[in-house]
Each structure stands twice: as structure tokens, then as C-alpha cells.
Computed example of a mutant assay.
Amino acid sequence: MKAARRPEVRLPALEAYAGGELEPDGDYDGLEFREEDFVGQDGGGARFMDCALTGCALDETRLHRARLLDSVLTGIRGVGTDLAEATLRDVELVEARLGGVQAHGSVWERVLVRGGKIDYLNLREARLKDVVFEDCVLVEPDFGGARLERVEFVGCAVKGADLSGVTLVDVDLRGAAVVEIARGVERLSGAVISTAQLMDLAPVLAGEMGIRVEG
């Protein structure tokens, strides 16, 4: 089992964002976005490099194919944020409150998700490598068709996960507080679970294998 490589983000001295709406294909370098309201705005294809986003509202914000690099996102919130086909590399996502995030086809590399709660995270066909979910709550995350390599779940609750068609390589679930799999339990090959988690998953595994348990 190869451990995930965590991001080591060291932000330079940042310049305060001057305000205004996000721009498609915009280039944002070394900026601090604090309590900005980006609701419904279009930053598709934009690049965020060495940035800090703190307490920003991202409801229905379009960040399709955006690139977030060497950045820290703290306390962001929003419903329906569009991160489809986006790239997150060397990113820390801290205490986020998000729902219905569309991140299908996205690429995550050296990403730490710490604290907070994300409902209905769509990671279908995504590629995750060296990603750590720590002390957070994931409600009905969809990993359908995704590839997860060196991904760790530490102290977090994973509820109603969809693993249909997923590929797992060196995925460590042992540290998760809760692991509930709604679909795709047969795709757990490539993951490591604890003895207690195996007992919790036994009914689902038995059902998948067609085993009837009585008495």
C-alpha cells in the first residue's frame, strides 16, 4: 500500500483581489479572494495559481476546465458549482460546505480535503491521484468510472458512495469513520479496509455474491 503524497502549499505574499466578476479564461496569480460573491459567474477555463480563496460563495459558479494550482480554498460554500474537467493540483480544500458539485472528468493530483461537508459530489470519470479526504463528510459521492490511485480516507464519513465501474489502486479506507457503499461494492479490489469495515460491509458483499444469510 503506497501512501498518498499530500500537497505542500506555501503561498507567497498575496495581493488582495480588486473585485469584479470572474472572467472566462482569466489568469489569476498570487491573489487573495476574501468573502467574494461569485454566484452564477463564469470563470470557465480560468487559471488560479498561488491563490487563497476564503469564505467565497460559489453557487452555480462556472469553473469548467479551470485550473487550480498551488492554492488554498478555505470555508468556500455553494450549490451546483461547476468544476467539470477542471484540474486541481497541489490544492488544500478546508472546511468547505458544498452541494451538487459537478466535477466529472476532472483531474485531482496532490489534493487535501480537510473538514467540512460535500453533498452529492459528482466525480464520474475523474482521475484522482495522491488525494486525502480527512475529517470531512461526503454524502452520496459518485465515483462512477473514476480512477483513484493513492487515495486515503482519514477520519471521514463516506455515506452512500457509488463505485460503479471505478478503478482503485492503493486506496486506503481503513481510517474512515463511516464507509457506506450504495453501488459498486464489487469494485473494491485495490482498496484496503479494516476488519470492522469488512463486518459492516458483509451484508452488501453477501448480497452482491448472491449469498443468502439466515439465522
Rank of each mutant, 00 (worst) to 15 (best):
L88Q: 03
D90A: 09
D90I: 05
D90P: 11
V91R: 04
E92T: 00
L93I: 08
V94T: 13
V94E: 14
V94A: 09
V94R: 15
V94G: 05
E95R: 07
E95W: 14
R97I: 10
R97F: 15
R97K: 12
R97N: 13
L98P: 00
L98I: 02
G99D: 05
G99M: 01
G100V: 06
G100H: 05
V101P: 01
Q102Y: 15
A103M: 04
H104N: 14
H104F: 13
H104A: 13
G105T: 06
S106E: 07
S106L: 08
W108I: 06
W108H: 09
E109Q: 07
E109C: 06
R110F: 00
L112Q: 00
R114M: 13
G115R: 08
G115E: 04
G116M: 04
G116N: 01
K117V: 11
I118R: 05
D119F: 05
D119H: 10
D119I: 08
Y120H: 11
L121I: 07
L121E: 02
L121D: 00
N122I: 12
L123I: 06
R124H: 09
A126Q: 01
A126K: 00
A126Y: 06
A126V: 01
R127K: 14
L128Q: 00
K129Q: 14
D130Q: 00
V131R: 07
F133S: 02
E134K: 13
E134F: 01
D135L: 05
C136H: 01
C136L: 12
L138P: 01
V139P: 04
E140P: 10
P141Y: 00
D142C: 07
D142N: 15
F143D: 02
F143Y: 06
